[in-house]
């Protein structure tokens, strides 16, 4: 059971999506949390990386005057005026957004209930979801406790950087995970994400051992992590763990990526070539997304 003091824990939300076909098995309700500990060069939604510092740079450019500064010098949004034009996100110099807000577990549950008949489960993504582990535990345990949501599975989409202690707490309420592996090579991982991959590799192994690794995701970035030798080593490490792991090879796309980190996009020929490398190492469940 969940401790009493955790029932009131707040989440820092970026956005929700009621129907998603790409975040785990079946149709899913997806919660995107704000804040990430990685700083991936190729992040497709960099405005989810940092928390808002209320600098107010975005207030003036808002064409709808939907943003204002409160007496406490916080930035707040008048939801009814916002047209989702995203100009505030474009002008933010800190990879954040004034649209992020705190939410209670109760509010999330109330939003999921009407959607529940249409979905297989809930996925929390980000940002990096595991940075808000207490919120995840409170949310997932509330989902499991609510009779109208009892049929739903709970999934986490993560960069894999959580420690095993965090995973141990999460797994009590988590049915599956999708983990990104940005690079198997330690140096390359650091270069791409500003973070070591030791914890990531440990997480993948740990989750696999506990049968909670639904899918491993590899973003293929031309000239960055697409060298044959690196890919073979990556494939061998995965194959040694389990040849039947579900692997999604995702072609890098430029949309959303910060201008200083634009690379060429991966085409079908490249992706087919990489899939072949993985298959040659005995991996059987390869899906290509491009």
């Amino acid at each position: 059971m969940i401790a009493k003091h955790m029932q009131n824990v707040l989440g820092q939300l970026n956005d929700i999506e009621k129907f998603s076909f790409v975040d785990g098995p079946g149709n899913r309700f997806v919660i995107f949390l704000q804040g990430c500990n990685f700083n991936c060069k190729v992040c497709h939604n960099p405005y989810t990386i940092n928390d808002c510092i209320d600098c107010a740079i975005c207030v003036e450019p808002c064409p709808e005057n939907a943003l204002f500064v409160t007496a406490n010098l916080n930035i707040e949004l008048k939801q009814e005026l916002c047209t989702n034009c995203d100009i505030c996100i474009q002008v933010c110099p800190y990879d954040s957004t004034p649209l992020s807000r705190t939410v209670t577990v109760e509010e999330m549950i109330a939003q999921i209930i009407p959607v529940a008949p249409f979905i297989s489960g809930v996925t929390v993504s980000g940002g990096e979801a595991t940075l808000q582990a207490d919120f995840l535990i409170a949310l997932f345990s509330a989902i499991k406790a609510e009779p109208k949501l009892a049929h739903l599975t709970t999934f986490i989409d993560s960069n894999g950087s959580a420690s095993l202690k965090v995973w141990e707490r999460l797994l009590e309420f988590t049915d599956g995970t999708m983990i990104d592996l940005k690079a198997f090579d330690a140096g390359l991982h650091r270069e791409l994400t500003e973070f070591d991959n030791e914890l990531v590799l440990n997480s993948i192994r740990y989750l696999w051992e506990r049968e909670r690794l639904y899918e491993l995701r590899l973003l293929i970035i031309p000239t960055q992590n697409d060298k044959q030798a690196d890919l073979i080593r990556t494939a061998r490490w995965i194959a040694k763990l389990d040849r039947d792991i579900r692997i999604k090879l995702i072609a890098y796309r430029q949309n959303g990526v910060r201008a200083e980190f634009l690379f060429d996009e991966a085409d079908k020929a490249k992706m087919d070539w990489i899939a072949e490398i993985f298959r040659n190492e005995g991996l059987s469940r390869i899906e290509l997304v491009y």
Binding site: N27, P117, F118
Partner: peptide, 22 residues
């Protein structure tokens, strides 16, 4: 329906069941 549904037909099964339940 978005094209992404093609890779996840079970999502459509969820929606069909849900729509009929509603």
């Amino acid at each position: 329906v978005e094209d992404t549904a093609k890779r996840n037909p079970m999502a459509m099964v969820d929606i069909i069941r849900g729509a009929f339940r509603q």
